[in-house]
């Protein structure tokens, strides 16, 4: 628990990477996490099936915003197939902090918006829990 607010988490929270608008974005996806009231809009610029650029805008708890920020650094330059293959386990491991069940949704909101954008969705199909993206309930 003491490890949850590590310096790099707080740094990503206070100085989010790839933050702001992305003019010319090809794919944009917005989602929220009602537990914390977290919000993230993820914008991708996809060219030749690659993530050429990414920016996100959001507000919410440190975990949700830091997780999204870390993810944007990771996906920049990756192929769409690689991005679509990122799973929750990978994101949680990458965060490198213990995440309680109640905060899992916060930690995975960034991934959800990245996936939504990568697949070109406008709305999440069905229940995010069954899709294995989010978990935990208010």
């Amino acid at each position: 628990m003491d490890d949850m607010y590590r310096d790099y988490i707080l740094d990503h929270y206070k100085n989010p990477r790839n933050s702001g608008d992305l003019p010319g974005a090809t794919n944009t996806y917005h989602d929220t996490n009602p537990l914390c009231g977290d919000e993230i809009t993820m914008a991708l610029l996809i060219e030749d099936d690659k993530v050429k650029d990414v920016r996100f805008k959001g507000r919410g708890c440190a975990i949700s915003q830091a997780s999204a920020s870390i993810l944007t650094e990771e996906i920049k330059g990756k192929s769409l197939d690689e991005v679509k293959a990122i799973d929750r386990q990978h994101v949680l491991e990458n965060l490198g902090i213990p995440i309680s069940p109640a905060r899992t949704k916060c930690a995975l909101l960034g991934l959800k918006t990245v996936k939504g954008a990568a697949w070109g969705l406008s709305e999440w199909p069905g229940d995010a829990n069954t899709a294995g993206i989010a978990s935990g309930k208010e």
Binding site: D2, M4, C36, C61, A62, I63, R103, C106
Partner: peptide
Amino acid sequence: GVHPHDVAQIFDR
């Protein structure tokens, strides 16, 4: 500067 959920998480500690 601190989201309520982060406040509550630190309170828990």
